[in-house]
Nucleic acid binder design. Structure first.
Length: 484
RNA sequence: GGCGCCGUGGCCAAGUGGUAAGGCAGAGGACUGCAAAUCCUCGAUCCCCGGUUCGAAUCCGGGCGGCGCCUCCA
């Protein structure tokens, strides 16, 4: 079976066929960088990363781009409040968001274009739309897209034009449009735009780009006229993506996007997490509170992207333990005794089966929860087999098992993250070893009170001991209590 | 009002026609000095009511409940 994706455009599962085998172009709608990103945003970004990683795992050459919106109503308002230019205001947030992305093990994109870097391209795009009579200028120097000039308008969101409620938009809009449903390509400069440096020169007057123009311009120049996959949150379907299609196809006459994928919202305290509802939690806050980044990543992958994900501390707690189970199993397998004479456990057979199950799940519209189900089934059965074999197995089986784990983790990215936050420096290592030896002496003398005191002391530092007939093993675990 | 989604064991969550993956939590047991890790055992008539079918969590109709979009939003 080949990879299948649910295309919002057709509302159905379609086999994935990129326009060209040479390069798969992916454009992801990124954040507006006027504030720190919250967990809901990162549900999307982690999903984008899953797409990125899975396409590469599947062997596609990928060009993956995510934009950063650094000029719009919100950035302008926020910059004014701080008395800064939009540039000054947004730059730190771009850094903060990329830092959070790193913390969650998100692969770097091939590019993070910012709207303000593509104003020239946007102006050209507007000009093309004017030339092709898809747009018109108004007296104040703004430019609007004429949606009646684009017959396909509404095809993504499945809205009928005459059903769009018009009253509120008229009241809310202070510009002069021919038709209230038209949207701005270029907004004539206002004093508050000038204050924060959000003004550019254009043939039809000074102003700034409209709401949706940046994605079209950057997508066209950074990925190409036809993008294979365009990613975004479900809230962007209308009007953002609908307008992008109109602009882009209006300008190029070519299909803009082959596959539209939209992520459902994160639910937090029974409603969607969003800034306007004021129920957001930032990634930064969670990490500062000691949440294991690997657990957060695991949690964000634990529901299918087209389902709502109920976010909360119970889930984070469950994910923390689930991640530890993966790490423990990997360590157990890595430390197992390999011996060509060992009786076969057939772990390699299970590894092959698991790989197939994993691929089948991911091929089915990137079903990460089902894919992780296959992984955990392997862990459970693997533990049983190792128990049976007394942690001794043939080398090729150990190798097959470890390779499977690392292969699946190239997609999931959970174990590598967990390893990162569990690393221990040399001096701590020495200290731990020393304390363990001391505890061993106490145990030999059957001074269990003292032995337990040492164990507790280590536990306070996040070091957990596991006694076994082969000696005492130790590991670092993630500490801290999730909030929410 | 228009469009759409969802309702699976205590929590989270796969499965969408052949009688219920997985994670977490819980109970009992094995192992352990005690733990930890691990293993074994235990738990769901899949919101309700009808219908289609040899057979439905899965399809259809109705109901109840929750959520999203229609406006900035991942």
């Amino acid at each position: 079976m080949a990879l299948h994706l649910f295309n919002t455009l057709s509302r159905s599962l379609e086999p994935f066929r990129p326009a060209s085998p040479e390069k798969v172009g992916v454009y992801a709608c990124g954040p507006t960088i006027y504030d720190h990103a919250h967990v809901g945003n990162f549900r999307s970004f982690v999903f984008y990363d899953l797409v990125h990683r899975y396409l590469e795992w599947r062997g596609y050459p990928v060009r993956f781009v995510m934009n950063l919106t650094d000029v719009d109503d919100k950035t302008i308002r926020a910059a004014r409040e701080e008395g800064r230019t939009i540039q000054e205001h947004t730059s730190p947030f771009a850094e903060s968001i990329l830092a959070d992305a790193d913390a969650l093990g998100i692969l770097r994109a091939d590019g993070y274009p910012r709207a303000t870097e593509f104003v020239e391209e946007m102006i050209e795009l507007v000009q093309r739309l004017l030339d092709r009579s898809h747009a018109y200028r108004t007296e104040d120097g703004s430019v609007y897209f004429d949606i009646t000039s684009f017959p396909g308008y509404g095809k993504l969101s499945r809205k009928k034009l005459d059903e769009v409620r018009q009253g509120e938009r008229v009241a809310a809009d202070e510009y002069e449009k021919d038709d209230v449903r038209d949207f701005a390509l270029w907004k004539a400069a206002k004093p508050e735009d000038r204050e924060v440096g959000a003004v550019w020169e254009a043939p039809w007057g000074e102003g700034r780009p409209g709401w949706h123009l940046e994605c079209s311009a950057m997508s066209l120049s950074e990925v190409g006229e036809t993008v294979d996959i365009h990613l975004g949150g479900e809230d962007l379907i209308f009007p953002h993506h609908e307008d992008e299609i109109a602009q882009s196809e209006g300008a190029t006459g070519k299909p803009f996007v082959r596959y539209w994928l939209h992520v459902k919202h994160l639910r937090f305290a029974d409603e969607k997490m969003s800034k306007s509802l004021g129920n957001t939690v930032t990634v930064r806050e969670l990490l500062d509170d000691g949440v294991d980044p690997a657990a957060l990543r695991h949690q964000l992958l634990s529901a299918h992207y087209r389902s709502e994900l109920a976010f909360g501390s119970d889930g984070l707690e469950a994910s923390t333990r689930a991640v530890q189970r993966l790490v423990d199993f990997r360590d157990r397998l890595r430390d197992a005794e390999v011996d060509a004479q060992a009786p076969p456990l057939e772990l390699d057979v299970r590894a092959r089966e698991t790989l197939e199950e994993f691929r089948r799940a991911m091929d089915d519209d990137l079903n990460a929860p089902a894919a992780m189900g296959a992984l955990f089934r392997f862990v459970g059965e693997g533990n049983t087999l190792l128990d049976r074999g007394n942690d001794r197995l043939p080398p090729q089986e150990a190798k097959a098992g470890l390779e499977l784990l690392s292969s699946l983790d190239r997609v999931l990215g959970v174990v590598e993250l967990a390893d990162g936050s569990r690393s221990v420096d040399a001096s701590t290592r020495d200290w731990v070893e020393e304390r363990i030896q001391e505890r061993e002496r106490a145990r030999r003398e059957r001074d269990f009170q003292r032995a337990d005191a040492i164990r507790d002391e280590l536990a306070q530092q996040g070091i957990v001991l596991e006694d076994s007939p082969k000696g005492t093993r130790w590991k670092r675990v993630s500490g801290g209590q999730p909030v929410g």
